[in-house]
Design a binder for these strands. Structure first.
Lengths: 183, 183
DNA sequence: TTTAAAAGTAAGCGATCGCTCACTTATCTT
DNA sequence: AAGATAAGTGAGCGATCGCTTACTTTTAAA
């Protein structure tokens, strides 16, 4: 409902009707409307982050590890597009402050270790974490957004193919790889 | 109001009260609530896109032109942070379909020309427009988002400095620049 | 089989929603 | 100055909002 009609189109009464239960039932499980939204967001985001680390190990080589994460994220998107759209919406809602603190806990550790290892092994240039993140993942999420919007920048709607993803990843890796020292 | 309380916290009565006018007055200028939001979004987005092209020319060298656009966008953000937050919110709202078509018209031409020129001059590798866009701008917008959220990935909140922006831009340019042919 | 806790419900509260109508005030034309 | 048009208003409509209360049904332990 939130993906289709937005947060302002989402109401507790409406949800109860759609679910075929009484509004009062909802308040057995959630304190109020906001609690429902926040708890749902946390649940979905947790699943997504856990899946993004599937078969991932912070000891992996950088290129290999980053590709794995891109694949995990892309796969999750293809299998649960609604979840991804939901989280993206929530990320830009005024409620996001109240969830962001709760969802990155274990995730931050693993990612931090991965980046730290990669820098130590000279597979990744030393960067502030935010700069790294902006380069390493923002392009992928933008591609996904183009795909869901099917906005036509060219004459054809964009599709997130294996090919365009790999192409973009290669360029990201090029940006993040240390320059070989002139010998 | 929308930035602070979200689309679902925004009401016509509330707005009228805050503005010190009668609700009926608002309906002189806008057909309904949705029309108000959409028209406002278009107006703000138009201003932003126009400013992003300030002192820009599609004939510029690629690195120079992209830096100019990053600077314009960053400056606009520093001077009108609320506008930027507003647009970001709207970009992820269910109403965005109804505005996206209307705001990229002239912008698309100029940007298309710029990219086309850069590719012809071998200052930029040949890419689908969406891939280019994802690499060229998504990292900047992610940095801006980190800045506004002041989410602490490290021990200190992130700030969008001239330095971190230039660093990120350099890496983006490295990704997008053709490899020199081995001679 | 009794009983008490848990789960669920219908009905509806007060508040607010988007929006309109009958009307008044300001502005402009001639 | 008179009349026409535009701009703005206060009051409030019906609908829906988030949420609660008094009550019934289901579940499960004793």
């Amino acid at each position: 409902m939130i993906v289709k009609e937005g947060l302002d189109g989402f109401g507790v009464n409406k949800l109860a009707r759609a679910a075929g239960v009484s509004p009062a039932t909802i308040y057995i499980y959630y304190k109020d409307r906001e609690d429902l939204i926040i708890q749902t967001t946390i649940r979905v985001a947790d699943t997504m982050l856990r899946e993004s680390l599937h078969d991932f190990d912070p000891e992996m080589h950088f290129a290999e590890g980053l590709r794995k994460q891109w694949q995990n994220r892309a796969n999750h998107f293809l299998q649960h597009p609604l979840d991804v759209e939901f989280i993206e919406k929530m990320r830009y809602s005024h409620l996001y402050d109240k969830v962001s603190g709760q969802i990155y806990l274990t995730f931050k550790d693993v990612m931090g270790k991965f980046v730290h290892n990669a820098i130590e092994r000279k597979e990744l240039i030393a960067l502030p974490f935010e700069v790294y993140w902006s380069l390493a993942f923002a392009p992928l999420y933008q591609l996904i957004k183009f795909h869901t919007q099917k906005k036509t920048f060219g004459h054809l709607p964009f599709e997130l193919t294996e090919e365009s993803m790999e192409q973009t990843l290669q360029l990201v890796l090029k940006a993040l790889k240390p320059d070989p020292l002139p010998s």
